[in-house]
Design a protein around this nucleic acid. Structure first.
Lengths: 208, 208
DNA sequence: AAAAAATTTAAACGATCGTTTGATTAAATT
DNA sequence: AATTTAATCAAACGATCGTTTAAATTTTTT
């Protein structure tokens, strides 16, 4: 899909509004106003509000799989280093696309929004790639046996998404209210990555 | 607050619908139909749709703090046992009130729904209680020093909430589609609790 | 330059939204 | 038993929803 300037303005505005107010809480008039286009242009380009959110997901859910695969199959790096990069890459990705990931969290709660099959398909592929990586590390004797890989992945995803979606609560609790949004983002990427690397490697690598 | 039979029917129906379709995705007509009451009764009893969701939060966010405090200050139990009970209690609570917790996840994403101050206040209190417990265990030499308690709590909350909100994805990925909802719930409570206990105790108790 | 196609617009469409009205019935109080 | 209060209902309120229309404008093609 190649979108022109106006279509991209609509997609960006919609993503931000859907993230902060939800699909039903956002009107096409809100989107049109934020994107500075006429209301009718949304139907004209995307057909409907439903198809607009599907277009956002389709635009966003590409690429991620290959990035992950590149990181995890780089045999010039040790398994531990690759695992570290997995965590850093995932956490960075979530915090660098907060709006889209809030949209995805909402969509997963909803379970009827049509895009859910797309999300499930993507989750399956990502889980397959990580799972293959861990198992190959186990065969080499680097990672411990008896790891519940699915639970581990859900801890990575769940912890990161939770802190991202409640980052302002988090900032208030840990006295980081004075930071700008960018500073807070960098701080969280670093600290969440370190926390998850320590936590997960404690069961992956250290003695069981 | 003491609610009569009809008011409770409205509160229950609204909680379920808000959880699955969101606040804006649920109409007062939907709620009235599900609760088997006339539409006007919602305004009559609660004033407005906004005040209805606030009533749900107020009704739900009580009691949790004292349950937690009882578990964590029971000095007849070891610190490790109390920590185990903390995890079990939290995970059980999330999975036994899925609708309300989905509502809360949505509300935290939203950040403008008025109930957010209530949620933040509650989070602060819960964090304070857990934090005090961990620190007292550190003083006794049971728990390791240098623990990021806030990150740990966010892993507990984030992992549990994430799996709960995507439990049907989870069931499909791990081949548990044949289970009934109750069976799946029991399976998840057990497995998530064990996973989190192992994971968190690996950094809390084992050599650093 | 003429014709065709694509874009943009204000206005309007019917549907549904949350809420209120005013009449009617049931319950509680005097 | 009379009166007041509370509960219930169908109907209607104005507002906003997503979408469409038809005309005007711009761009592209011939």
């Amino acid at each position: 899909m190649e979108y022109n300037h106006k279509q991209l303005a609509i997609l960006d505005a919609a993503e931000q509004l859907f993230a902060s107010q939800g699909f039903h809480g956002t009107s096409v008039r809100d989107i049109a106003h934020a994107a500075d286009v006429n209301i009718a242009m949304i139907s004209y380009y995307f057909g409907s509000k439903e198809k607009l959110i599907e277009a956002i997901f389709l635009k966003r859910i590409v690429g991620w799989k290959s990035v992950l695969e590149t990181v995890l199959t780089d045999e010039s790096l040790t398994f531990e280093t690759r695992f570290d990069k997995l965590v850093e890459t995932y956490v960075g990705r979530i915090f660098n696309n907060p709006c889209f990931n809030l949209m995805m969290m909402r969509a997963q709660i909803q379970a009827d929004l049509g895009v859910n099959d797309l999300i499930h398909q993507n989750k399956l592929e990502v889980y397959g790639i990580i799972s293959a990586f861990i198992k190959s590390g186990q065969e080499k004797g680097v990672f411990n046996e008896g790891i519940d890989i699915l639970m581990m992945v859900n801890t990575l995803v769940g912890t990161t998404n939770h802190i991202m979606s409640t980052r302002h609560h988090f900032a208030r609790i840990s006295g980081l209210e004075h930071l700008t949004d960018d500073q807070l983002q960098q701080h969280l990427i670093t600290h969440i990555s370190n926390h998850l690397k320590n936590l997960l490697k404690a069961i992956l690598i250290h003695e069981a």
